[in-house]
Design a protein around this nucleic acid. Structure first.
Lengths: 203, 203, 203, 203
DNA sequence: AATGAATGAGGATTCATTCAT
DNA sequence: GATGAATGAATCCTCATTCAT
């Protein structure tokens, strides 16, 4: 674990990332409480003191990691977010979010640790979150403008239509529900239908 | 902080509860990571050693607190859960959950800390959770039997119809959305409609 | 362990002894370091506070126990010390000491804990020790006066002739030597011969 | 206590030894029970945390100290153990043991604390003890083979002939006997004679 | 006299952070 | 820039002792 290959060094060419990834892995495994700087150093293959050349202190390390992880998650979920109809776009995001949330990767597991932290350091995080998830907000706003989606605060819409995606993923990841593709597709559709303005169908 | 009134002593007549409430308060404020036994002792107005007469160690204190808080939350949310039609019952629970989640009480704030912890100690907690929320599960199952609600795993239904209640409450509590009674009512209705089997209404 | 029979109460009629025996047992099992007042109380079937009605503090409890145990040991070893010839008397003591030291009784096991403590509280103990083992000293002095035993300080004689008895017992108790009656008898005889003035045998 | 001279640093050049010697001193003074890590740190002139860079925990510190002290003692006692006749060899060891045991050095005083501990950690210690004192055992075995020494288990022989050496030293160190060179020499000779097979001397 | 709940000082251990090399 | 030994405050927990009942 101390021998780093040449290729490895190119990919992870700077220690900043190395340290971030090490921290991410440890948090994914043992929770935020289980994060010690010495562990991070060992996992990253650097000396404890070196961390402090890249991060002011432990808080900053965690804050930067949160931002980094948030960016990764948003990037993964919102890839190709602008292709197709509104419905296609929504469902693509919903499914990506779901599939992402089901994973046992360090990134996803550590992400979930931050989500419900006591409310500290959060202004900077919130700001970033809003920026990163702007496309999703725009999607909702576009739907509202088109008279398709309920005229509610996008955060309401997110709560109603997107939170279930993550919640279901979590349950599956924890083994509380068996995975069943058909049900997932149904749930996705239900979430989409839910926020639509019901067409007083003259059909 | 050492002077406890007579009334206070009647309400909080035993130290077990006193300690539990102190821990709850501290967790609500500073998160689980910020919980030190010394703090709990000070907040509870007892000596550090006294805690150990009531709880084997810190883990047990936290576990018992989780169970206690879970019971409180379930009790508050499921009060009168069995009155009225399925729809009335669902909406009553939804609204109670929402109103509960909006509060800045220690109980609610600490509750949210546990909900997304790394997966430890969880067997006992899960078991209790299932027992406490059984009425909600029954409600879903009843709806399915009646051909009213989508035949999905109750956890799916919970994720789709109930998680939004908490998610919205959280956003309001955090000041990210302004409270608006009409929107809440609408959201509640949307969540209810969402899990119903659409009546291919020939109406 | 909480139910004490009537007979038991007569034998151990006072709590002083009850506490002493409890402490002895705990020390025998877990060493002096493993002695907590709470444990003593539980083992003795009394409240923690009660111990302090009989002993000023933990030090005094241990000191009194040492004195008590020393008396028991001396009593057991020196029973019938004055019957027979010098040789018979010596060998009886040697064998009793050996047999006593082989036991895994609380009394013996706790006794060995004290023997090599750092030198504190020892004046009182030494005084008692000298009193209790006076018969043994007299035996040596008598032998010297008769021109039978080497004219050495009785403590020398004790060290040469008696320490081996305990040392061998200890080794057997600890399973380092197998017990073999003939060898013990031989060792006892060797120890006796060792301190005799060699008779420039005209044989 | 923080200023360490240059010479001092050369002698005690590494903290491992520094800590070991500090622990040794404290045990010599106050017994094993009186050993706190804070005390060791203070005495050694290091921070409490530093100890844990060199020893996993208190148990390991004590274990390593026991091994270290045992080696020192064996080294001192068995120096030149193989020169001369059996008798010369025996008596040299006996006298060295005696002289060593008389000292009030930390090493000796702490050594005596371990010798009669409740039986824990002892496998490793026993193993080492056997290795270190092998020359003494060989001496006894050689004597037996030559038909000179009684054919007893070497541990018997040790108990009979060597324990007195330490016991007498202890009594002198504690001021219970006055030191008298002639008596010591006599005692040594008695111990040697004791384990010999008596020559049915036709003299 | 007896109780046992409560105390709080003290002990072992961890860990974020510093700094001489 | 990098190191990692050293620091010492902070943490969890124990336990001798007290005292109101």
């Amino acid at each position: 674990m101390n021998e780093r290959s040449f290729i490895f060094d190119i990919i992870m060419h700077n220690k900043y990332d190395l340290i971030l990834r090490a921290a991410e892995k440890i948090i994914a495994t043992g929770g935020i409480q289980g994060l010690s700087m010495q562990q991070v150093a060992t996992e990253a293959g650097v000396a404890a003191g070196t961390i402090y050349r890249y991060f002011k202190d432990k808080n900053e390390l965690i804050l930067e990691l949160r931002k980094d992880v948030l960016s990764q998650v948003a990037g993964a979920i919102l890839a190709d977010h602008d292709l197709g109809t509104l419905e296609q776009r929504f469902k693509r995001i919903w499914m990506k979010m779901h599939n992402y949330g089901k994973q046992r990767t360090s990134t996803n597991l550590s992400y979930e640790q931050y989500a419900h932290l006591p409310e500290s350091n959060t202004n900077e995080i919130r700001q970033l979150e809003m920026e990163l998830f702007a496309p999703l907000q725009q999607l909702f706003e576009e739907g509202i403008k088109q008279g398709l989606i309920q005229p509610l605060n996008p955060r309401f819409l997110y709560a109603i239509a997107m939170e279930p995606s993550m919640a279901i993923a979590r349950s599956i990841r924890r083994g509380l529900i068996e995975y069943n593709e058909k049900d997932i597709t149904l749930a996705c559709d239900i979430c989409w239908q839910a926020i639509l303005i019901p067409t007083t169908s003259t059909n």
